[in-house]
């Protein structure tokens, strides 16, 4: 508990500095509102229902894109890790496409799909798929071949081997990808919404810009930060549960 409070102290300090600087006579509030006013705006937007609705829209898009990207990445990554032939086919394509920033696809997707949920969802899918795929391949390759052979001599067929040995032992690598990409997916989703769609947190940011409502923009940014922290916490919590064997002495 003491450690958690310790982590929060710098955050509170940051807010305090923000509040103080914004309240200096030379700083105009319409350009840099104090923290307290942003919080009031945040609560107003929540009460109005606008922020909540748009948060859910963003989360829905991130959820679908991230889930689809993760599952496809894990399945294809496991398959490529196991089959050298498949790896030799897919990996060069991945190596070619992976360096393209996922937000770089947004203009193309806009032309292909118009103003549609498909644009942020596919952009998020691309953002999460590649790193998870690569980490899954690496995960399979890192499984001790003796462990695989031991399972085989014990009578495990291919499916049992994948389900009970290879997949669980690849999970540490897969979680490395998940931890990085969960936050990245939210960022990609917000950018896609800013550019392509009149709904979601990204859209609210753009609305704030067009109304020159800096308080609204800060309230949305604060919400994004909060959601990121929650997602990060969720993934770490899941990791702890799934990789219990890495940290615990016993079940």
């Amino acid at each position: 508990m003491g450690r958690k409070i310790k982590t929060l102290i710098p955050v509170f300090l940051f807010f305090a500095v923000w509040e103080t600087v914004a309240r200096l006579p030379s700083v105009p509030h319409y350009l840099f509102p104090p923290f307290s006013k942003v919080i009031i705006k945040l609560l107003e937007e929540i009460a109005k229902g606008d922020l909540v609705k748009n948060t859910f829209i963003t989360l829905y898009r991130v959820g679908i894109g991230f889930f689809a990207g993760t599952i496809t990445g894990i399945v294809l990554g496991l398959a490529s890790g196991i089959s050298e032939k498949l790896n030799e086919t897919i990996s060069p394509i991945v190596a070619l496409l992976y360096p393209i920033p996922s937000i770089g696809w947004i203009p193309v997707l806009m032309v292909w799909f118009g103003i549609s949920d498909a644009v942020p969802i596919i952009a998020i899918f691309i953002c999460s798929f590649f790193p998870i795929y690569m980490n899954a391949v690496r995960g399979v390759k890192s499984v001790d071949s003796n462990v695989i052979n031991a399972a085989r001599t014990m009578g495990a067929n291919k499916l049992t081997l994948i389900k009970n040995v290879i997949l669980p032992l690849s999970m540490p690598n897969i979680f490395t990808g998940l931890k990085i990409e969960s936050g990245m997916s939210l960022r990609t989703g917000v950018v896609a919404e800013m550019l392509a769609i009149p709904s979601g947190l990204g859209y609210m940011l753009m609305k704030g810009e067009s109304l020159i409502d800096v308080k609204l923009m800060f309230a949305v940014l604060l919400s994004i930060a909060l959601i990121s922290v929650i997602i990060d916490f969720g993934v770490k919590f899941l990791e702890k549960k799934v990789l219990i064997w890495q940290n615990s002495a016993s079940k």
Partner: peptide, 22 residues
């Protein structure tokens, strides 16, 4: 016959215990 159907037990040099299982 493939290894899974030989009824052979093999203890490897590094023992190859499954680290994720109790």
């Amino acid at each position: 016959i493939p290894p899974e159907h030989r009824n052979v037990a093999y203890i490897f040099q590094n023992l190859a215990l499954f680290p994720h299982l109790t």
